[in-house]
């Protein structure tokens, strides 16, 4: 565990907490893509199957349980408790366009053709593109609330910090995982446009509004 990896995990945790707090305190999930949240829940479910087969550390297990619980709690808030505030008219991304290619690719390019490895690989590919419905929603409405953009910034920072962690681990321990790294780069690149808008607008106190 190095500082970049820890920073990445904490940024991820922060993003999840920001989202839950936003929905809970405003009693509304307006502006949040339920489709992206479904994909994140699917991602964690597929990836953390090893929770029952492999013990790594208390930290590792606790974080997995927290991520899973938070993902399903978010879905509950969006699709049950505050369903009336869910902006489904703007959340029109077709999930099968992301799930099917991720599943197909996981079956072809993986470390080992076993259920747990293919599911892990599927989760890596799916996570890389899981934010697309959310970004699509922001581009459709042309704007995002500040709290939503803080959430997106924390979520994007997480994988960016993981990349630094992978570079560090490659030089310090010779460790590398090509699948995770390439997918992580794709995932981070998807956030670049958003990062630019966040730094140039949101941090200067303006609302995130896309140029017309």
């Amino acid at each position: 565990m190095n500082i970049f990896r820890l920073g990445g995990d904490l940024a991820h945790l922060l993003a999840i907490i920001i989202l839950l707090l936003k929905i809970w305190t405003t009693r509304s999930c307006a502006g949040i893509s339920g489709k992206s949240q479904i994909l994140f829940a699917l991602t964690f479910t597929a990836r953390y199957l090893d929770l029952f087969t492999n013990f790594v550390s208390v930290y590792n297990s606790v974080m997995k349980v927290v991520y899973l619980a938070a993902a399903y709690a978010t879905l509950y808030l969006m699709y049950v408790k505050f369903k009336a505030t869910y902006d489904h008219n703007h959340d029109t991304f077709r999930l099968e366009f992301l799930i099917l290619p991720a599943a197909g690719l996981a079956l072809i390019i993986n470390h080992e053709f076993s259920i747990i490895e293919v599911m892990w690989t599927f989760s890596i590919y799916l996570e890389a593109v899981a934010i697309l419905p959310q970004l699509f929603m922001v581009s459709k409405t042309g704007e995002a609330e500040s709290i939503t953009s803080h959430y997106l910034f924390a979520l994007g920072s997480y994988r960016a910090l993981y990349i630094v962690n992978w570079v560090y681990r490659y030089y310090s321990e010779g460790f590398y995982d090509m699948i995770a790294t390439l997918a992580g780069v794709v995932q981070t690149v998807l956030y670049c446009d958003f990062f630019y808008l966040y730094i140039t607008k949101v941090l200067k106190g303006k609302k995130l509004q896309l140029p017309a």
Binding site: R5, D9, V56, H111, E112, E117, W120, Y162
Partner: peptide, 10 residues
């Protein structure tokens, strides 16, 4: 390598 790959990252 037949051992199960240990994935220590989240």
């Amino acid at each position: 390598e037949l051992t199960v790959r240990i994935k220590d990252e989240l």
